[in-house]
Write a protein that binds this DNA or RNA. Structure first.
Length: 460
RNA sequence: GCGAUCAUAGUUCAGUGGUAGAACAUCGGUUUGUGGUACCGAGUAUCUGGGUCCGAUUCCCAGUGAUCGCCCCA
């Protein structure tokens, strides 16, 4: 829903004065641009969990973090992703800067990372060069569930290794990320689209087949026949998928090198006990892919499924962008989609540690002293909650109770003068007055023993 | 880019051609310095712009946005 923020009431005279100088300001729309949204505090536990799991696995598999700009020169994307693709043709956020540069917001992360790889001479590093990245990407598309104009990806890329064992490992990483998030039912779809040589031959073969059936294709696919014939295989229209079903498949027309590569990949996947489905119709929407392509889908064989992520090999991209020929493979996962799926399967979000101590104050002197006491406790590693703005002890205790803390420290006028603090146990309601000097140690001790108690309780 | 449905407090929802109500949430209070329950009270909303009408939040049109499907993908 679109809401305008009400303009503050301005005094008539003042309004008159400004009206002479400038036009009335447009009302602020309390809403971000279409297809973009806030990630609210209530959702952050899921995002935290994704951050933790993806970063942990990236370290375990030897990836180094890289962050590249949100914007690049447009032609980086045009060249790498391909002029004829949907992503470039209709989904690219591009604009011209004041200086006349043609800039675009990244629609995916690999192009920028490949650019950085070349720019910083990373080809001299020990291979494979494994890079991990995460952040927002932008595609101007019609929003719906799990599809936003600004969305977040986690991205894993590895440069400089052509051995299919790396393909298998990357697929394993992708699967493990998803499964470590608690999404157990997934499908791994793999295919090989060959290298430029055998793909060209295959494409010709496919085009001649499709042309012979052109009258049975939908309008879009007739158009795709010229622009991007591989996409016809992906079409969801009934009549098209019927045509596609008996179309020649890329896996049957690979050159020797690509065939062997794909065969070994499958053997490695078997070795890893990763169940996969060979999907001859999996082609992916980016032109730079060669040989291995794959997607991770949520859900079981039957029922609804959505692509959580995907990727593939791009052995020619670095050279295409002007670097020295470097084989590479990578994949991206959509964070919003991962989270939708986590919620659907009721996977656990990350729970940040919560304060177990509340600090309540009463009276001017105590209020002043409580500020220092708070930082004293914090410096000693004790998480403390407070509500300094509230005056009455009543409402402060109510907050403490709602937060579910184990104890409340009460510092009132009397205590402030005596240099003491009341420790109130929120479970039993018992209170004791202790001297300020011993407070930190005592609180620490109490928290520790309380934890031991709960530990035993949990195991009985 | 195409099609469908929808749009009322922070949230989930009522309701009406005469400018709106609940629940939950929030905040305050139920005697001065003690929480959970209970009770009392408060604030906040008809997406925007036009049209019909004496009068529209309600009917009509457009815009915007959300959701769903297509397309595509993350």
């Amino acid at each position: 829903m679109a809401k305008t923020i009400k303009k503050p009431a301005v005094k008539k005279e003042a309004a008159k004065k400004t009206a002479v100088v400038k036009k009335e300001a447009e009302p602020i729309v309390a809403q971000p641009p279409r297809g973009m949204k806030d990630i609210l505090p209530t959702d952050q536990p899921y995002w935290d969990q994704v951050r933790r799991v993806t970063e942990k696995l990236s370290r375990e598999y030897g990836f180094s973090r890289i962050d590249t700009p949100l914007a690049e020169f447009s032609n980086l994307f045009n060249r790498s992703i391909g002029e004829g693709t949907d992503i470039i043709e209709k989904e690219l956020y591009s604009f011209v800067t004041k200086g006349g540069d043609k800039i675009a917001l990244r629609p995916e992360m690999t192009a920028g990372i490949a650019r950085a790889f070349i720019q910083h001479g990373m080809s001299v590093l020990s291979k494979p060069v494994k890079l991990f990245s995460t952040g927002p990407v932008y595609r101007y598309d019609r929003p719906q569930e799990g599809r936003y104009r600004e969305f977040y990806q986690v991205n894993y890329d590895a440069f400089g290794e052509q051995d299919p064992i790396l393909d298998a490992q990357m697929i394993q990483v992708a699967a493990r990320v998803v499964q470590n998030l608690g999404i157990k039912a997934i499908q791994i779809q793999v295919n090989s689209i060959g290298c430029p040589v055998c793909r060209k031959e295959y494409k010709d073969l496919l085009v001649s087949y499709l042309e012979s059936k052109a009258n049975k294709l939908c309008i879009d696919c007739k158009r795709r026949l010229d622009a991007n014939p591989l996409r016809v295989l992906d079409c969801k229209e009934d009549k098209c998928s019927q045509v596609a079903a008996s179309a020649p498949q890329s896996v049957d027309h690979l050159c020797e090198e690509c065939r062997v590569h794909f065969k070994s990949l499958l053997e490695y996947l078997d070795e890893l006990d990763l169940p996969y489905t060979i999907n001859p119709r999996l082609v992916r929407g980016l032109d730079y892919y060669t040989k291995t392509v794959f997607e991770i889908w949520s859900g079981s064989e039957e029922g609804r499924k959505s692509a959580l992520g995907g990727g593939g090999r791009y052995d020619n991209l670095v050279k295409l962008l002007g670097g020295e020929a470097t084989p590479a493979i990578g994949f991206g996962l959509g964070v919003e989609r991962l989270i939708i799926e986590m919620k659907r399967v009721q996977a656990k979000p990350y729970k940040a540690p919560k304060p177990k101590v509340f600090l309540a104050q009463l009276g001017e002197l105590a209020k002043k002293k409580s500020l220092r006491l708070f930082s004293e406790l914090e410096k000693n590693g004790i998480l403390v909650a407070e509500s300094f703005g509230r005056g009455s002890l009543n409402s402060q205790l109510r907050v403490a109770n709602r937060l579910g803390v184990e104890m409340t420290l009460i510092l009132g006028q009397k205590e402030a003068l005596d240099k003491t603090v009341i420790i109130k146990n929120m479970t039993t309601g018992e209170q004791e007055t202790v001297s300020m000097d011993k407070l930190v140690d005592l609180v620490k001790k109490k928290l520790k023993t309380d934890n031991v108690v709960t530990y035993h309780e949990n195991h009985n």
